[in-house]
Design a protein around this nucleic acid. Structure first.
Lengths: 150, 150
DNA sequence: CAGTATCCCTCAAGATACTG
DNA sequence: CAGTATCTTGAGGGATACTG
């Protein structure tokens, strides 16, 4: 059996540390990205990513164990399985969008083509996400504090 | 010299893939988190994270090379350096907040304590970030499409 | 204090072959 | 097609010692 990750961060009181421990792995994040893009089958992920089969097996297992994917019987009647996002998994959408928006802004040359995320109905790109106060005002990092433990 | 990362994703047209390639590494993300928490010195990061010195050297080097940190002379007059977020680095704030908010909601038991991010002035936690259309309406993953290349 | 230089060991990762 | 099993390589990562 392939090993899972270190896990030592799961005892941390910082939610960032725990979240990083669960999903901040290159293959894991790309699998989740593809799931938001509608992929569900082992072969869909495997071909799209060019990931080694054993790696994909490992990542899918971890994602299911983490409650991010759930396994369902294949919708086409074959005896295989589909990996679909749970509610917990779907709530990773803002995280994937945050990766995307930062990448769009900072990792492409002027005029260089990139794949874009659009609102299907309007064809418009999304608004740039930013943290806001409860009143809806955009907040800058310097205006925030971490309260150590609650 | 310690090696940098694979880099093969930097040719990808998907901004998520490129961004993942640059920053989706456990230590890298925790260093950036600490930078938002005000840390600037090698020793600050090292003690806070318990990271091996050589690992920290490698991560800081990569972060500077990626334009996320810039090196400045120490503000206390010593001959050492400080690592401060550039504008590009500061724009990772929504990403870190996305990790935090997902972690808060899904990786702590009911009533379990966690370190919280607050608006300093009001003491209030931030609003839950979510992707919106240009009109400000919250959008769900199923309402979006990736347009392959532009 | 802020790094650099080694050493060493585990594990991540790909390649390949096999199975129901 | 959807995995599992095995093998090998090299990178990730910690520990320790050294340097300006």
């Amino acid at each position: 059996m392939l090993t899972s990750k270190h896990q030592h961060l799961q005892a941390e009181p910082c939610p960032v540390a725990r979240a990083v421990d669960v999903i901040a792995d290159r293959w894991t994040l790309l699998v989740v990205r593809d799931a938001f893009d509608g992929k569900r089958r082992f072969g869909d992920f495997q071909r799209g990513l060019g990931i080694a089969r054993s790696m994909l097996t490992d990542r899918l297992r971890n994602l299911v164990a983490a409650g991010i994917f759930e396994v369902k019987p294949a919708s086409d009647g074959t005896s295989y399985q589909e990996y679909v996002l749970t509610s917990k998994g779907s709530q990773l959408f803002p995280l994937i969008v945050a990766f995307r928006q930062w990448g769009e802004r900072h990792l492409f040359d002027e005029g260089e083509a990139y794949s874009q995320l659009l609102e299907t109905a309007s064809g418009e790109p999304l608004e740039l996400m930013s943290p806001t106060t409860v009143n809806g005002r955009t907040i800058r990092p310097e205006e925030t504090t971490v309260r150590k433990v609650r």
